[in-house]
Computed example of a mutant assay.
Amino acid sequence: MAQSAVDPAVDPTALTCSLCLEELKEPVPLPCGHNYCGSCVRKHQGKSLGL
């Protein structure tokens, strides 16, 4: 039987950027533990994220 490429122990929302709501591209982990796309971090850098 073939194994799934997705680990069932991984939360699928952990692979999604909560700013653009797409799959993480160039993931950037922040000190708070959240991950965002590199381009989203650059776009929102210096702006309040409302977190």
Rank of each mutant, 00 (worst) to 15 (best):
M1R: 03
M1F: 09
M1N: 06
A2R: 11
A2P: 15
Q3N: 09
Q3Y: 07
V6P: 04
V6R: 07
D7I: 11
P8M: 08
P8C: 11
A9T: 14
V10H: 06
V10Y: 03
D11Y: 02
D11A: 13
T13E: 03
T13M: 09
T13C: 08
T13Y: 01
A14L: 09
L15P: 09
L15V: 14
L15F: 12
L15E: 11
L15D: 10
L15N: 12
L15Q: 12
T16V: 15
T16F: 05
T16S: 12
T16G: 11
S18I: 08
L19K: 02
C20K: 00
L21D: 04
L21K: 06
L21P: 06
E23T: 15
L24N: 07
K25P: 00
E26L: 14
P27K: 00
P27N: 01
P27C: 06
V28K: 02
V28N: 01
V28F: 04
V28D: 00
P29S: 11
L30M: 09
L30V: 12
L30A: 09
L30R: 03
L30E: 00
L30S: 06
P31T: 15
P31I: 15
C32N: 06
G33Q: 03
G33E: 02
H34T: 10
H34C: 10
N35E: 03
N35H: 09
Y36C: 05
Y36T: 02
G38H: 01
S39D: 09
S39W: 01
S39H: 10
R42W: 02
K43P: 04
K43I: 13
K43Y: 08
K43Q: 12
H44L: 12
H44R: 08
Q45M: 05
G46Q: 01
K47I: 15
S48W: 03
S48H: 08
S48E: 09
L49M: 08
G50T: 07
G50N: 05
L51A: 07
L51N: 02
